[in-house]
Design a protein around this nucleic acid. Structure first.
Lengths: 341, 341
DNA sequence: CACAATTGCGCAATCGATTGCATGAATAAT
DNA sequence: ATTATTCATGCAATCGATTGCGCAATTGTG
């Protein structure tokens, strides 16, 4: 804030020898104020460079005109796309966006969520941290009936609006695709199974195997945190098996890339000898060589929808909750395409 | 906000038959309140689930505990890295971060900046939009002495804290590098010259040419907006010249990639026949093939520094302004490395 | 034991905008 | 001309937390 304080409606009122109420009403275009007075007020406000103090207004109105968004990491393509979508819709609706990242740490997430609450955000959009917690901090929002929207990583035990991509279908389709390309032994690198997202992807994988009469071999599935290093370790392990896979469905593009590079360095040809698919359609997956087949998740759209859900819920509490499932798109690229290449 | 309103200090006071002042002081660990009373208050506050209303507190204290950040596009690697850095430092210091994106539109930027001001952010961190404007909306912050920090894209005519990368040296080094690799005719794809960043990069380019006794040929320089399409158009144009270049210093990695793909499709070998360097070290530049030589900009660090600058300025107004110049790093990759490959 | 210093707490104003109710003036209706 | 409406505006309380000042009770000093 600043020393020489900003002009207030009282300053305007004093100057024009009228009351602050009138000024307030005039600035809101309240028809109860005559056109003449209103014009005088607006004109003076302009020339004084008056800008309403939103904090005061918010206090009185018991709303913050702010929606909070919490992601694991801002600097991740998918999440920043969501944030961008949220910002767009929120801004148009006259809301500001307060942002924070949990770094996938339960403690930071709790702290952030409390802070968002203390700031009285009108709604909270969140993709929860990987670290499993008890979610008490989020239940508070439900208890107090503050709009809450989960996106991507949701919490099953909390009943509220959710928006996810169709991870099951995504997992199903990439697996089906690998099978159609003639890969016979398909491994899977799965993320933390406490997160619905990764669980669903795996279930889609299992379902596709089953539909094609392939028996599910648990030894071909590795659960890790899907970092670049995890990818290398996992593929190393998988290739050391007595009967190694000839394709992997990686839980994200990062591990798809790191395993691909590892395999390539080992002289394994992709896609001829080995098929790889990722998930998320990170920008790099399109431009690496070979380019990586993956599942596109509409991040920006998801952000827009999440914002719409929140705004809706703010305007219309008590409405029944819904879970939006956004469709995913299979993007076939070089890393798995050995039939038509 | 929510219907059944939150407990306030007055509720606590009433319950304990003491005054709200005492509650307020106790919660701030004011030593004027006896340990016994303080403990009773804190314990009751806990059990009531009391959370201070930050808006009320902010109003009274005339500060928002919020810093605003405005970027052209949230969903861009460099910017989201900066945001991430800002968030980290700000959060640790007890500040919340309000975010918005200008989409490189002057009008939206103006609107955002006004909104940030109306929300009484304690400081504003901004990288301005490409579209040239008159910057009046930003001068207001200076006039009112509200901490303002420019990063990356700065405004020369406004005197305040700034933080940039050493674009000049970056431009100089990539050019020098291309020369050392034996490229003879080096073109440059430059961004909008009203932005200091791009101007400095070009100046570095010119300086390197000059230092090496190469005359500066303006026809080899294309100014555009550095989109993917711009890159293709520019390289198309350059290659149609009577004496086309044999290397290009592209103003960013996006254009470096699109021109590289264009040239490769034309059967031109990179780096053997043609050298390409980009700028910014986008994540993809490392993993594409050939990988792209570029200049690394420390986005996350820049965000941290920007936040530190703002916090410093908030705590200590009247301090003289500084311009932090962060070092850049030349990353030599395949696209320009024909000597040691 | 009388007076001073310290301790613990409450009163009431304040931050800036909003709004239900009241008031006085202007206009309309009878 | 007199009462009923409508119109334009003001008063004062409110949102929730903070804080300067003051007062009373307790403790300390000589």
């Amino acid at each position: 804030m600043h020393k020489k304080s900003e002009p207030t409606i009282h300053d305007i009122a004093r100057e024009l020898k009228i009351s602050a109420s009138t000024v307030s009403r005039a600035l809101q275009n309240n028809p109860r104020i005559s056109l003449k007075t209103r014009e005088r007020i607006i004109s003076l406000a302009d020339s004084m460079g008056y800008r309403p103090n939103i904090m005061a207004s918010n206090l009185r109105n018991k709303r913050s005109n702010t929606i909070g968004i919490v992601v694991p990491l801002i600097n991740r393509y998918f999440f920043s796309a969501v944030i961008s979508g949220v910002e767009e819709v929120a801004f148009k609706a006259g809301y500001t966006v307060m942002i924070s990242q949990s770094n996938d740490l339960a403690n930071k997430e709790i702290s952030i969520v409390h802070s968002m609450f203390a700031n009285r955000v009108d709604g909270l959009i969140i993709s929860i941290a990987m670290q499993p917690t008890n979610y008490e901090h989020l239940k508070i929002f439900r208890k107090k009936n503050i709009p809450l929207v989960f996106f991507d990583r949701t919490v099953a035990e909390i009943d509220t609006n959710k928006i996810v991509v169709d991870d099951f279908m995504g997992g199903f389709r990439v697996t089906q695709h690998l099978i159609e390309q003639g890969y016979k032994r398909i491994g899977h690198m799965a993320g933390p199974q406490n997160l619905q997202t990764y669980l669903h992807r795996k279930n889609g994988y299992i379902e596709a195997l089953s539909k094609n009469g392939i028996s599910y071999d648990e030894s071909l599935v590795v659960n890790n945190s899907l970092t670049s290093e995890d990818g290398v370790n996992a593929v190393q392990y998988l290739m050391s098996l007595p009967k190694p896979p000839d394709a992997i469905f990686c839980g994200n593009d990062t591990t798809a890339l790191s395993s691909m590079i590892y395999l390539r360095d080992k002289g394994i040809r992709i896609p001829e000898d080995f098929g790889i698919v990722g998930f998320s359609n990170e920008p790099f997956s399109k431009v690496v060589s070979p380019s990586i087949s993956t599942i596109a998740q509409p991040g920006f759209l998801m952000g827009q929808k999440a914002a719409e859900l929140i705004l809706n819920q703010i305007a219309n509490k008590g409405k029944p909750f819904q879970t939006l499932v956004l469709p995913t798109e299979l993007i076939i690229r070089e890393s798995s395409n050995r039939k038509n290449s």
